[in-house]
Design a protein around this nucleic acid. Structure first.
Lengths: 195, 195
DNA sequence: TGACACACGGAGCACCGCTCCGAATATTCT
DNA sequence: AGAATATTCGGAGCGGTGCTCCGTGTGTCA
């Protein structure tokens, strides 16, 4: 979207390199990593970084775009190949797992979904829509709680991802998924073992 | 614990005033408010603030201590006066409501529960214990999901409080409570209306 | 090859957390 | 009362941050 064809050669090189370096730094230090540090490690002036990515969110958007697209595509796959219940649960699980990849991304995502100006807005809305489809399908099949909408599902995923981001709770992330997400979605109760 | 008897008069005055000012600033700007700003507004040097509250968490601890104590006491009350199910649900609701009072406190609380050196550690552990009692009582009465422990409950409360802290989701905080917390706790399903 | 538009880099501003120490002052002792 | 002492005060200073702005350097195209 940004690195369109009409871009000077040196500019494109810096853009790509910056993105590559940023991926590493963000993976290590989280979404609020020092932009100055990213520029420094990329051997590039701070102004260069800000011209290519005028906003921290613009940088994150470039970083996450492909993963987001994969997740929405994944939802479509599951909708075609799996049972409604299974599809919903595994997609939610995969979403929370991915969101935990970069620390601090969750917060930015939930902020973006209600902020049309955010660079991440479109991606987040698409993600919510994909989840809503899966949820609706499961509800129609009677295997998911009615009275829940796409935003609720988005919030549920965000909450679980946030829990996984907290060092103190990360070890029991999967258990928390069983204890919180599964009953909330109305799926088979893996803890009680009843219906 | 800090403002013991043996304190110089001017020191005590500064301590109290600082705390009062901090309450306002934290209420307005959240848990990561500028300490410099707090000192400035209190008409006090930065060194003074740091001597009385060597750590941001120490300041928050002083700010939240009484509320925490009230919440644990509240749990004991509910245990005595209410049904196991009702007691658990209302306590969890009250906890999440309070935690949302100061923005950003949730994150610090979950970090504190596994960090014995944190000034907030004791309070958080006490809170978890109070919740665990209520949970156990409800489990024994068969109105709460087994396989859940005090830490899970703490995490659930934290997740809900975090959701309530997000501007984009705050309006549906109560709905999210019904959709996430109620089924997770195994209480009556207010959405479906079935057992 | 020359001209021009564009990209580059970093100095600069205001803010942050946190430390450290000379100056001021409450307290206590004589 | 006045002096000695122990504490407290306050802010300068350090290294970091986000972000802007503009003189300089350099690809690109006629």
């Amino acid at each position: 979207m940004c690195q369109a064809g009409g871009m000077r050669a040196d500019a494109r090189k810096n853009y790509d390199h910056l993105l590559e370096v940023a991926r590493g730094v963000v993976a290590e230090h989280g979404a609020d990593a020092s932009l100055r540090d990213i520029a420094r490690r990329a051997g590039v002036g701070l102004g260069t970084l800000y011209r290519h990515f005028p906003t921290r969110e613009a940088l994150l958007e470039a970083l996450l775009r492909t993963s987001f697209d994969e997740l929405t595509a994944h939802a479509a796959d599951l909708e075609r190949t799996g049972t409604p219940e299974e599809a919903l649960l595994t997609w939610v699980r995969d979403c929370t797992r991915f969101t935990t990849t970069y620390h601090g991304v969750t917060e930015i995502m939930v902020a973006a979904i209600e902020a049309p100006d955010s660079a991440l807005h479109a991606s987040c809305v698409a993600l919510r829509a994909a989840g809503a489809r899966l949820l609706l399908r499961a509800q129609e099949a009677g295997v998911a709680r009615p009275g829940m909408d796409g935003t609720d599902l988005f919030a549920l995923i965000a909450a679980l991802a946030w829990l996984g981001d907290q060092a103190a709770l990360a070890p029991r992330a999967e258990h928390l998924f069983d204890v919180i997400a599964v009953p909330a979605l109305g799926g088979r109760d893996v803890v009680r073992g009843t219906a």
